[in-house]
Amino acid sequence: MRVALMITCINDALYPSTGKAVVRLLRRLGVEVDFPQAQTCCGQPMVNTGYLDEAVPVVRTFVDAFAGYDAVVTPSGSCAGSARHQHSIVARRSGDEALERAVAEVAPTVYELSEFLVDVLGVTDVGAYYPHRVTYHPTCHSLRMLGVGDRPRRLLEAVRGIRLVDLPGADQCCGFGGTFAVKNADTSIAMGADKARHIRETGAEIVVAGDNSCLTHIGGLLSRQRSGIRTVHLAEILASTEQSAVEEVLTR
């Protein structure tokens, strides 16, 4: 099986540790991924702001980079959703039939990380160890656009040492929403403030999610509030082992 890693633009630039965690995790599970150097972004920032023409070259780059793989795995529900549900809209708009065909081929091969682990590799216990009190925020696009269901939760429940605590109002949006966070900043912050309050109420040290974009917003609020609660991507928890936990303590 030829598997490509789609890192996403935000992980590439701001959260390389998430990408490294995916590589480490999949390697541990016996899967070597390619990293097609031609990749850039899924184009969602443009599509969701209404700039469909501007998204066309980005989608073209995307399908060129990921054509021919059996599976494309990405640590983002939102970007996977964009590739699976929005690329066809952009392609249709471009009037380029070759692009439409390419999108139709590539889009179904894109998997969000928890889908890839549970559905493609068929594992829920990935042999991780993470001795922390953690609460899980299901991001909207993973939950409702992709329908990942309880896959991330099942993966987390199998992690040794973890204390998973329920997040009240978990399925409520955190208020990030891409450019919504800036265009409608007041509403976005009001939504985020409620999410942050729910997270603090759980007493968790860590809030985990499958999208670093949402975690940037949530973490930004938690940090400004000096809550001491850290945001961590799902991949990083699943990649953790007893050895990495010891090393983490040693390097503190």
Partner: peptide, 9 residues
């Protein structure tokens, strides 16, 4: 149309 975080609820 921008008054939404596109959460899908």
């Amino acid at each position: 149309p921008y008054a939404s975080s596109l959460c899908g609820a």
